[in-house]
């Protein structure tokens, strides 16, 4: 579990906002190197790695997205403050006063401007939209313009932390937790011969519309695919029927858009191997890469496994390492099973 945590923390500590995933991609590539051959980063930034038999009829693809939500610099104002737009679904309620990292031509520490209480109207109940917020680097306009370009990315600064019970907190666990599960699965499969081909796709731009998974799946065109993402875990204030339980195992997706047979097989294997699991039923679109992968080329049979996660899209997302390990085991058994 310590090794998995180390992997996860390394992945979370490398920045990768949509369209600018290279730091995270390099970190993931390095983690895959002991297990895979032909690791490439394609022109969409996707990390693609292969193991197993390239000539087998059965070609499985595991997908997790490598990008994380962030912000993008849209303007530098006369006083050197950076004005920004969201890059993915940023929760503006966590931004005021937050420390951030700006990836300019050097790495800069900034703070999201927050009005002092005596200037706040409406008792501080209103949170401005992201495009009305600004980032303070403590620089003049000229200095800021030398160090930052429009289009540079910003992420919230938050170090990974260990909580009780194998639980951890970090920014970017959506979906580095999924990336860690896929890498861990490759590790589990490493020393056994595979009867199928296995391609790992760590895809870019999920948070802005799954363009990485769409093009990556086109390139790979597997016979079947499993997308690994995160989904809502139980937390105060959220109705129990809307979420899974943290620490209760993989959430196996059920939806009209997902392959039923694959889902049944995953459930069967989970029961057989005594891997705790839970069902996540959706009425249509899953809001994950599975939606895009399924309709690639002439169609790809696709399943979805989710890791329960609390506080999605905040810098303090929480997952249980046990859940990641179980997702990896479930996928490894699925790949071996036939």
């Amino acid at each position: 579990m310590e090794q998995l945590k180390e992997l996860l923390f390394q992945l979370c500590s490398a920045a990768g906002t949509p369209g600018d995933e290279n730091l995270a991609a390099q970190q993931a590539k390095q983690a895959l190197e002991p297990y895979c051959t032909d690791i490439t980063i394609d022109h969409m930034g996707n990390v693609i790695a292969f193991m197993g038999d390239p000539h087998a009829e059965r070609q499985v693809m595991l997908d997790a997205h490598i990008d994380q939500i962030g912000m993008i610099v849209t303007q530098i104002d006369g006083d050197g403050f950076l004005h920004v737009a969201p890059c993915g679904g940023v929760d503006r309620r966590v931004l005021p006063g937050a420390p951030v990292t700006v990836y300019g031509n050097e790495t800069l520490t900034g703070i999201v401007c927050c009005l002092p209480p005596h200037l706040v109207e409406d008792d501080g109940n209103k949170v401005e939209p992201v495009d009305k917020m600004a980032v303070d680097l403590g620089l003049t306009k000229e200095e800021a313009e030398r160090k930052v370009s429009l289009g540079d990315r910003i992420i919230m600064k938050c170090e990974p932390r260990t909580l009780l019970n194998h639980r951890v907190s970090s920014a970017a666990l959506d979906d580095r937790a999924g990336c860690a599960a896929v890498i861990r699965c490759a590790q589990l499969l490493h020393d056994k011969p595979l009867k199928c081909g296995l391609t790992i796709l760590l895809s870019t731009r999920e948070e802005t519309g799954s363009q990485g998974a769409k093009t990556g799946a086109f390139r790979i065109f597997p016979t079947e695919a499993i997308a690994v993402d995160v989904s809502f875990a139980d937390q105060p204030g959220v109705a129990a029927y809307k979420c899974g339980k943290l620490g209760a195992g993989p959430m196996i997706g059920v939806s009209p858009t997902l392959d039923r047979e694959m889902k049944d097989k995953l459930v069967h294997i989970a029961k057989d191997e005594e891997i705790p699991y839970q069902m996540e039923v959706m009425g249509g679109s899953t809001g994950t890469n599975a939606d895009a992968i399924g309709t690639t080329q002439s169609g790809v049979r696709t399943a979805l496994i989710s890791i329960p996660l609390r506080y999605m899209h905040t810098p303090v997302e929480v997952v249980d390492l046990e859940d990641i390990e179980r997702v990896a085991k479930l996928m490894a058994s699925y790949i071996h099973h036939r």
Binding site: D91, V127, V238, Y311
Partner: peptide
């Protein structure tokens, strides 16, 4: 950590409220 309800599960008016 001090978490928050996921943005995906918020009503639109909740998104702009502290």
């Amino acid at each position: 950590v001090i978490g928050a309800k996921p943005i995906h599960l918020l009503h639109s008016e909740e998104r702009g409220k502290a």
